[in-house]
Amino acid sequence: MTRRRWVLVTVAVLAAAVVTARILYVNLSAPHVPVEHHRVGERVELDGAFLFERDTESTDGYSVTVEKAEVVTPAQYLSSMGVGDGGVPWADEPYVLAVTMEVENEGNDTGYIDLVTLGVIDGGGDDMVQVDADLLYRAYPQIDGNPVLKLVRDSEFTLTVPFSLKGQGPYFQEATGAYPVPFERGRCELVLSNQPVQKLVDLDV
């Protein structure tokens, strides 16, 4: 190998080493968010931990206890809420994860739970399954347009939150709107907060 080629190879190796060192530095110096795992039936105190915005959510005094989680059809979910399923597409397809939780508020006059920012990490960790707002508003029309759970001081409320994943049709196929993606049964995680601590409830459905 000629001297010029040796120089080029050496420069390339050094450049790669610099890039690798920079990536490692960024990863090591990035803020670390602690993660807590909780079980179904365990009371999870939020202690100010939030999903999206600390100041407005203000969750001090709020706690969540997940009672159960199950995969159901939209028709089954709405029936359990005492609501008809008229006009709901794919009403008999089991793609909804219904999570029943008890929320308590001790001594907080301003905070709330941001319902539409709740999410479920699927078993493979590839998708964040979001709240199905259409089903949620049908079940709880009082929160339509303001999807937060704000409890009066020193009170509690039990609700069942529906989660679903929607996809789009294949490329080059005429668009017909989103279609439901079957919920993958197995282990998954309900995300109750993202900062400064990520609080997760481990589910097995």
Rank of each mutant, 00 (worst) to 15 (best):
Met1Leu: 11
Arg4Lys: 10
Arg5Thr: 12
Val7Ala: 12
Val9Asp: 08
Thr10Leu: 14
Val11Ser: 12
Ala12Glu: 07
Leu14Cys: 14
Leu14Met: 12
Thr20Tyr: 10
Arg22Gln: 12
Tyr25Trp: 11
Tyr25Pro: 02
Val26Ala: 13
Asn27Ala: 15
Leu28Arg: 12
Ser29Thr: 15
Pro31His: 06
His32Phe: 13
His32Gly: 06
Val35Trp: 08
His37Cys: 07
His38Ala: 11
Arg39Pro: 02
Val40Gln: 04
Val44Ile: 14
Glu45Leu: 10
Glu45Tyr: 15
Leu46Ser: 00
Asp47Asn: 10
Gly48Thr: 03
Ala49Thr: 01
Phe50Arg: 00
Phe50Val: 01
Phe52Gln: 09
Glu53His: 08
Asp55Leu: 13
Thr56Met: 13
Ser58Trp: 04
Ser58His: 12
Thr59Arg: 01
Thr59Asp: 02
Tyr62Ile: 02
Val64Asp: 02
Val64Cys: 05
Val66Gln: 01
Lys68Asp: 13
Glu70Pro: 02
Val71Trp: 03
Thr73Gly: 06
Thr73Asn: 08
Tyr77Cys: 00
Met81Thr: 05
Gly84Ile: 07
Asp85Phe: 10
Gly87Asp: 09
Gly87Asn: 13
Val88His: 07
Val88Ile: 13
Pro89Arg: 10
Pro94Arg: 06
Thr100Lys: 09
Gly107Glu: 05
Asn108Ile: 03
Asp109Val: 01
Thr110Lys: 11
Gly111Met: 03
Gly111Arg: 02
Asp114Tyr: 08
Asp114Met: 04
Leu115Trp: 05
Leu115Cys: 08
Val116Asn: 09
Leu118Lys: 03
Gly119Asn: 09
Ile121His: 05
Ile121Glu: 15
Ile121Cys: 02
Asp122Thr: 04
Gly124Val: 00
Gly125Asn: 02
Gly125Thr: 07
Gly125Asp: 03
Asp127Gln: 13
Asp127Ala: 11
Val129Glu: 05
Val129Tyr: 08
Leu135Glu: 00
Leu136Asn: 04
Leu136Asp: 00
Tyr137Gln: 06
Arg138Gly: 02
Ala139Trp: 01
Pro141His: 08
Gln142Glu: 15
Ile143Thr: 04
Asn146Trp: 04
Asn146Tyr: 06
Pro147Gly: 08
Val148Ser: 01
Leu151His: 01
Phe157Met: 11
Phe157Leu: 12
Val161Gly: 03
Val161Trp: 04
Phe163Ala: 05
Leu165Val: 12
Leu165Asp: 10
Gln168Asp: 08
Gly169Tyr: 05
Pro170His: 04
Pro170Ile: 03
Pro170Lys: 14
Gln173Thr: 08
Gln173Cys: 07
Gln173Ile: 08
Ala175Gly: 11
Ala175Thr: 13
Gly177Asn: 07
Ala178Arg: 14
Ala178Tyr: 11
Tyr179Lys: 14
Val181Leu: 11
Phe183Asn: 04
Glu184Cys: 09
Glu184Pro: 05
Glu184Thr: 09
Arg185Thr: 12
Arg185Gln: 11
Val191Thr: 13
Asn194Gly: 09
Gln195His: 12
Pro196Gln: 01
Lys199Ser: 04
Lys199Met: 07
Leu200His: 09
Val201Thr: 06
Val201Leu: 06
Val201Trp: 04
Asp204Asn: 11
Val205Phe: 14
Val205Cys: 08
